[in-house]
């Protein structure tokens, strides 16, 4: 102890006559027990706090899930549409007209041509089921809450309606949703028997390929738009500034009665962009190329030319933005 400190550390005490003695005395140095206890408590606190952090890190974000009822959707079945086939529509087996004939469709792009010698093709497709609506935010949120995957698609926008089409999903996110829905439909006792039988016959839930999507959009008669061959801005959410809740625009004239096959959001497919004729074979010959994946239908921000049933948009598999979503199929 320094001299200065010794001088300063004076013990003040009171004697019987209330006089004050200020005789210098060595101050009592506190024991180490209190400090050691504080240190130990601090250590335990840090350990417990980090254990809690650990749980938070490992937890799936269930706060993203919608909990309220949505009219027309079943909250007990992952917000799938409330109808006999949970929003799936059967597309019967058969051929259809794929690609564009510039003589009939002046807005056709070159990549919609079937081959050098043929403007359009006639692929034959087996029976499959396609969702009537684009996948919604509520549906995707149910998947996120259950799996913890792709949380960014619904992060920071909890206030948005659950029946808006989900966006900010990339191609692997969309495929992950379809795999998850496949598992749920197979496991649930509420899955309609027709769908369950189809799944058990070897079918699976996935993204549509280009042909499946196009047939569902334009039917078998080769129409340019889902409702016919002339543009009609009342039949699709195009040239606007935001997406609408799925099914907002009724379209009884549309092929198979599907909604939003034109406009609202681009819909991802499982097909790589390559020249026609269409083939559903997985391309393993160009693995070193940076392939783009086809998206269909145009979005709310597009004009009518990009909302035709034969238009082939394409995107990097990692891209997420506000104009791209998807719908699902059950197919062999």
């Amino acid at each position: 102890m320094s001299k200065k400190q010794s001088r300063a550390a004076t013990d003040v005490k009171t004697n019987s006559s209330d006089t004050i003695s200020t005789a210098p005395a060595k101050p009592a140095v506190p024991g180490r027990t209190v400090g050691f206890v504080i240190m130990s408590v601090l250590t335990v606190f840090v350990a417990v706090f980090m254990q809690v952090q650990s749980r938070n890190l490992g937890n799936t974000d269930t706060s993203a899930a919608y909990t309220e009822e949505l009219e027309g959707f079943r909250s007990d079945l992952w917000y799938l549409p409330d109808d006999e086939l949970l929003g799936f529509v059967a597309i019967p087996a058969g051929s259809f007209t794929m690609g564009s004939n510039p003589a009939l469709d002046r807005m056709a792009y070159e990549n919609e041509r079937w081959s050098r010698t043929q403007r359009q093709g006639q692929p034959l497709l087996p029976l499959y089921y396609i969702a009537k609506f684009e996948t919604t935010r509520a549906q995707f949120a149910a998947f996120v809450a259950d799996s913890g995957i792709a949380q960014q698609a619904i992060a920071n926008s909890e206030s948005l309606p659950g029946d808006l089409p989900v966006t900010q999903v990339n191609w692997p996110d969309a495929l992950a949703y379809t795999r998850w829905l496949d598992e749920q439909l197979r496991a649930s006792s509420d899955t309609p028997a027709e769908l369950k039988a189809f799944l058990e016959s070897g079918a699976r839930v996935t993204l549509p390929n280009e042909a499946e999507w196009e047939k569902a959009a334009r039917g078998e008669d080769g129409r340019v738009f889902p409702w016919g061959s002339l543009p009609n801005t009342n039949m699709a959410n195009i040239a606007s500034d935001r997406p609408l809740p799925v099914g907002s625009i009724e379209c009884d004239e549309c092929a198979y009665g599907l909604s939003d096959m034109s406009g609202n959001v681009w819909e991802l497919t499982r097909s790589v962009l390559k020249d026609y004729p269409f083939s559903d074979e997985i391309d393993r010959d160009n693995l070193n190329a940076e392939q783009l994946y086809v998206m269909r239908g145009g979005s709310y921000s597009d004009q009518a030319n990009n909302a035709r049933a034969a238009v082939r948009g394409a995107v990097d598999p990692g891209v997420r933005n506000d104009t791209i979503g998807f719908r699902v199929v059950i197919t062999q």
Binding site: D173, L175, I282, Y293, P317
Partner: peptide, 15 residues
């Protein structure tokens, strides 16, 4: 999925 997002095509095929 991560490989596919990074434009590694074999990853997409494996999905």
């Amino acid at each position: 999925s991560q490989a596919c997002e990074l434009k590694f095509q074999a990853g997409c095929v494996n999905l």
